[in-house]
Design a binder for these strands. Structure first.
Length: 224
DNA sequence: GCGACAG
DNA sequence: ATCTTGTCGC
């Protein structure tokens, strides 16, 4: 396994290498599938980063398992290279899960990326897990506003390419931006996102992982 | 040409 | 991402 890239040039080369290994197709989730949400929180002062993974039952929406992992920040925030900043602790948190997720939902993009290898795709190729990205803002892509009902969507476009969907998860609320990560199709990833966002704009997996990594970071800050 | 740009 | 009070609503 190659060392984690330390420079932007190495990171770009690594993206190029991994991009060829992405599989942007795959079936819908089965009843009772286990979906993991992952997210990270930062302490800029101490270069500390904490990741959380929360495993949710796709059908009941119950939390099945939670893990966290902490580390030193090892890469700056560079638009288009987010994976190199966020993935090290995320990989650790996922490795600590006792169950194997049937899907990992990331806070960010997959195929919707300048070089078609966002955080979610990158994670999928590294782990072999099925992944998809659900982002809160449209990055540099364009879309027409979807109709106002829950479940309505419109294509997320980069030039002439459809790279994802602007999906309305709550009536009258601004959409989220879904893109394929690895081993799942866009329609299937969108269906999973909608099913996990019954009550709020963001899927429960993302909401719970976000809340957990913030809590875990706050606890570390108290004890150190 | 320059800057902005997921989190 | 993070800096941040009170406030509206279920």
């Amino acid at each position: 396994m190659p060392a984690w890239p330390a420079t932007e040039a190495d990171a770009l080369a690594e993206q190029h290498r991994l991009r060829a290994l992405v599989d942007p197709t795959g079936p819908a989730l089965s009843d009772g599938a286990l979906v993991a949400g992952v997210d990270v929180a930062y302490d800029e002062e101490r270069d500390l980063v904490v990741a959380a993974a929360v495993l949710v039952d796709f059908t009941s929406l119950e939390t099945v398992e939670e893990t966290t992992a902490a580390g030193q920040v090892s890469f700056p925030y560079v638009p288009g290279l987010l994976a190199f900043r966020e993935l090290p602790p995320v990989l650790d948190a996922l490795a600590a899960l006792r169950h194997r997720p049937d899907l990992v939902l990331c806070d960010g993009y997959g195929l919707a990326h300048p070089r078609r290898l966002g955080l979610a795709s990158h994670l999928g190729v590294l782990t072999g897990l099925r992944t998809a990205g659900v982002a809160k803002t449209p990055f540099t892509f364009t879309y027409d506003h979807p109709a106002p009902a829950r479940g309505d969507w419109s294509p997320l476009v980069d030039g002439a390419e459809v790279v994802g969907r602007a999906l309305r998860t709550q009536a009258g609320v601004k959409p989220v931006f879904v893109s394929v990560g690895h081993r799942i199709g866009l329609a299937e990833a969108s269906d999973a996102t909608l099913a996990l966002a019954r009550k709020y704009r963001l899927p429960e997996t993302t909401r719970r992982a976000d809340s957990l990594c913030r809590r875990a970071l706050a606890e570390r800050q108290l004890s150190q």
